[in-house]
Write a protein that binds this DNA or RNA. Structure first.
Lengths: 226, 226
DNA sequence: CACGATATGGCACTGAGTGACAGGATACTG
DNA sequence: CAGTATCCTGTCACTCAGTGCCATATCGTG
């Protein structure tokens, strides 16, 4: 009778309420299943791991991210980061659920672990995409590092937002962090350091946080040259 | 009869061999326990999660890292990264075991997940340490980002080393990556971008991958100034 | 040796997760 | 519409992870 999406929602919020009421460990898969009007067996067909009832949204988001990555173009790090925007949007929209889930995950190791592993999925998507973009010998390593940084930023943005939903604008904060990551680790940042320019047409120069004139900086550079 | 350390070793390599021989899923906790000459019940006292038999070394390493973090001083990012050196040393020493374990983890989701979660433990140690060091409003966020980057680098170093143990020197590669991370995300890298220098005595300037003279760079900067 | 502390084993139990089978709904085809 | 293939669900039964409880070593210490 119920549409699959609607059933999924009933399972998700039903599980949430049961976890909150009885505690996570005391809530069996059977409890959740019967609360949603299905059998235990069918429950495990939907969620091979019991904890994943709470995280069914990520399965959808991951598809969105993957799709967006495959069709986007532009500066790789920004593209990677921005591919997470629909996820952020979705989480913000679902704020009350996300907050309650986070509260549960704070106290229950299995839930927290599961969440970490879901975040890892995003990270691997981004890393794979970045590895495809960046050319060069060690790009796989950098792809992984950058993806980790972007995802840490993303996670922290959500944490911050959950701590003070009113005052924080997660989109703005994430955009800002992404800027900083892109600037420090992008084209001109992390990249081969061997002798001889790999991109002679575009040497890497980053100047941050400076009120100095170009001449003063030139002087600084001259002094710092190894 | 057996010393605790020796028993631990018997369990670890015994489990490894059983996993390799019979497959991970087909190997029960009882198999491992009896192979090491203890009861199933005692086994679960040693390792609350079955998969952790293979990762018992990390419990030790984590203590080393924590200790090293608490007693070290210096540039925070480098200190954080270098706190992982004993781990790297240990893994390299135990090369054959680590390689076989990695091969197993490549094919078995539960093992891979468990490994990810162990890495996460290191990451949280580093993040906590960095958050203690960095002062400033958003330092918690940066601490998390930097810790994630450092740990991604660390993981990748190990991956690379396992792929070609002969040609790669993991210590050197890690040192190099750590340099790059520290340079791009350290003092002069990621940090407040608002108007006005936060560290007027030390403006952030990074020049990488350039064969240009200071004057040429000054010119570049002048052109790029927003 | 005696005795308290700690580690181990045995037993029983709950619950996660899975394979096999059967019935029912649904979709496709003539 | 009837017939049939397909998919989805529920039931049953089973293995095994993980845990509490209690009895029994085993060990350090006086």
């Amino acid at each position: 009778m119920p549409s699959p999406a609607e059933l999924n929602a009933r399972l998700r919020v039903g599980a949430l309420e049961l976890f909150e009421a009885k505690g996570f460990d005391a809530t069996t898969a059977e409890d959740i299943a019967t609360a949603a009007g299905i059998s235990r067996r069918t429950f495990f067909r939907y969620f091979p791991v019991r904890e994943d009832v709470l995280f069914s949204d990520h399965a959808v988001y991951l598809l969105l991210v993957e799709e967006r990555l495959s069709s986007a173009s532009g500066e790789p790090i920004r593209v990677a980061g921005e591919s997470l925007l629909p996820v952020l949007e979705g989480l913000v929209t679902d704020a009350s659920f996300v907050a309650r889930r986070a509260a549960l995950a704070r106290d229950n190791v299995p839930l927290r672990d599961r969440e970490v592993l879901w975040m890892r999925e995003y990270q691997e998507l981004l890393a794979a995409h970045l590895a495809r973009q960046d050319l060069g010998g060690r790009s796989a390593i950098f792809a992984q590092i950058v993806a980790a940084a972007v995802l840490a930023a993303f996670s922290q943005v959500i944490v911050r937002w959950l701590e003070s939903p009113a005052t924080e604008d997660p989109r703005a904060l994430f955009a800002e962090l992404l800027d900083e990551i892109a600037e420090s680790m992008g084209e001109s940042g992390i990249r081969g350091r061997g002798p001889g320019p790999e991109h002679p047409e575009r040497p890497g120069v980053v100047v941050i946080n400076s009120g100095l004139s170009a001449e003063q900086i030139a002087h600084l550079i001259e002094g710092a040259r190894p």
